[in-house]
Amino acid sequence: MNPNKALWEKGDFTRIAESMRESGEALVKSFGIRKGLKVLDLGCGDGTTALPTARLGADVLGVDIARNLVDAGNKRAKEESLTNCKFQEGDATNLREHADHSFDLVVSIFGAMFAPKPFDVAKEMARVTRRGGRIIMGNWIPNDPTLVAQILKISSAYTPPPPEGFVSPMTWGIENNVTERFAHAGVPKEKISFARDTFTFNFPSAPSALVDEFKKYYGPTMNAFEAAEKNDRAADLQKELEDLFNSQNKSPRKDATSIPATFLRVTVAL
């Protein structure tokens, strides 16, 4: 199996996505969505940004490599009677089913950054976006002090080194890399803009309970705990993550979690 597909089908990212709904909806409101806009949400998960986009009247196609997340997205869209939103399995490195210039807007919030072959990802996103359209990406930033970058940094310290040729998804959080990748896709750097933005994880229990959700359902953290257990270091990993989540929790209540995470917002105007 494709290792990227295996990673995201391993757990159940819908459990993590529950903590991301409010920020997903708020982010979409800044996209300038209008009725009838053709939108591709790439690496869409179960629809954290795809469903809010459809609620605003756009025609949305969500594409994700994980079959379980595609099924969950279609179920959510059906429950809301959103006939203008559908999900299908696909690979961000090869969108061969979609013709050139098919979409007005291509969105990928913490999705396509995890696909291998980043130059292919940029090329495909640019190819399927119409001239005059936009690409909007949300990418975690390497070594950022906030939540997700630190989860991935801590987890990587417990897992075996990646295979030769592996390109870290976090490299999508570096502006020069983004510019270079889109340049190879024929996009001049003056068409690309960057901003720092915030995504907040809200969870109705204590931070330690959210750590458990990541431990049980988030592929990269699951892999880290499996490796840590083999080395009798699972308790160390648990403590590091609980310390992280507790220190970054902004909720005034001890039985609730609200943790902001900084990301790089990329806008490409084609």
Rank of each mutant, 00 (worst) to 15 (best):
N231C: 01
V28T: 12
I259E: 03
F114T: 03
S81T: 12
A157Q: 12
L7C: 11
V107Y: 13
A72P: 01
V121Y: 07
D104L: 11
E240R: 14
F194Q: 13
S81H: 15
S251I: 00
R67V: 07
I141R: 05
T257V: 01
L237R: 00
L270A: 07
A261G: 11
L27K: 12
N249A: 03
F263T: 01
L244C: 05
P260N: 04
P204T: 00
E79G: 12
D243E: 13
A235M: 02
G11S: 13
P160F: 09
E175I: 05
V70D: 01
G133R: 10
T257D: 05
E164L: 10
I151T: 04
P169Y: 01
G138A: 06
D12M: 07
M125C: 09
K35I: 04
H101Q: 11
A99V: 05
F87D: 00
I151R: 05
R55A: 04
I33V: 14
K117D: 06
A122T: 07
T14I: 08
R67I: 05
N176Q: 13
A224S: 10
Y218E: 00
R233Q: 05
A122D: 06
F110G: 06
F203A: 02
S81M: 06
V128K: 07
P160R: 13
I16D: 02
F203G: 02
D41G: 12
E124Y: 04
F245P: 02
V148Q: 09
V39Y: 14
R34V: 13
K75E: 07
L264F: 11
L69G: 02
L27R: 13
A256S: 10
F110W: 12
C85Q: 11
F194D: 09
A115S: 14
M222K: 14
D212K: 03
L95N: 14
G219L: 03
Q88H: 10
E190P: 10
V63Y: 08
L37C: 14
K216T: 08
K230Y: 01
A256P: 01
G90P: 09
K216I: 03
F194C: 06
A54M: 11
D197P: 11
M1D: 02
T179C: 04
N74R: 09
L27C: 08
